[in-house]
């Protein structure tokens, strides 16, 4: 009996049990120490969303939409400001098939910022309350103005304005935000007839 307890087979058993105990403790401690708060998938979806907070997706903002995608409640193609690239990135992340943007949620537009015609503004503060990112500055019965660098172009201030003094101005290209273009080459015909010059289209 004594011999069997110290036999190599039992030794191996002890080692395995010991290892299991040690590793179990390590796992238990790390589960407590490295506990992830909240759903990390929501944060990753939220990081892809453009943070326009426009609500075109049908949810109150980008975070609620991220939550809805994570729970499988919403589709990945409801965010027009994120555009086609955004839908692709979301499809990649959640492991779904890519879908083109749902036209019911709106269409992708060039980025714009709101502009208040200060001659017309009556200082009603309705747009200030509507702005999801506090990008409008003003007080009751005083002229309001947009902090252009903070404006996400969500258009939520347009509807509440009683005097329609807010317009969306597309962001113009300037030397600061100018980008080098994708190289395109005009394909010339042998007889150099320029009427039918097609540009080499960028591969999608």
């Amino acid at each position: 009996m004594f011999n069997t307890l110290t036999s190599p087979m039992f030794l191996a058993l002890y080692v395995m049990i010991g290892l299991a105990l040690v590793l179990g403790v390590v796992l238990g401690v790390s589960a407590l120490k490295f506990k992830v708060e909240g759903n990390p998938l929501i944060a990753r979806i939220d990081a892809i969303l453009p943070q326009t907070q426009c609500g075109q997706c049908g949810y109150a903002g980008c975070k609620p939409y991220a939550k809805a995608i994570a729970s499988g409640e919403a589709d990945i193609n409801q965010c027009p400001p994120g555009g086609d690239a955004g839908a692709r990135a979301l499809a990649d992340l959640v492991g779904m098939e890519y879908k083109p943007l749902n036209a019911a949620n709106g269409v992708e537009k060039p980025k714009a910022v709101a502009f208040i015609d200060e001659n017309i503004c009556i200082g009603c503060t309705l747009c200030i309350q509507a702005c999801p990112v506090d990008a409008i500055l003003g007080a009751a019965k005083h002229m309001h103005t947009i902090i252009a660098s903070e404006c996400t172009g969500c258009e939520l201030c347009l509807a509440p304005c009683p005097v329609d003094c807010i317009t969306m101005e597309p962001i113009a290209e300037n030397p600061d935000n100018w980008k080098w273009k994708y190289p395109v080459f005009p394909i010339k015909l042998e007889n150099s007839q320029p009427k039918n010059s097609n540009d080499e289209k960028k591969a999608a």
Binding site: D46, L49, P50, Q51, T52, Q53, G61, C62, K63, P132, V133, D134, A135, E150, T152, N177, K179
Partner: peptide, 19 residues
């Protein structure tokens, strides 16, 4: 440009959460 857009999005997220 993508890095700048990301920065702007992070700012917008922060401001929205604060609001």
């Amino acid at each position: 440009a993508a890095a700048k857009a990301k920065e702007a999005a992070d700012l917008a997220r922060e401001r929205n959460e604060f609001k």
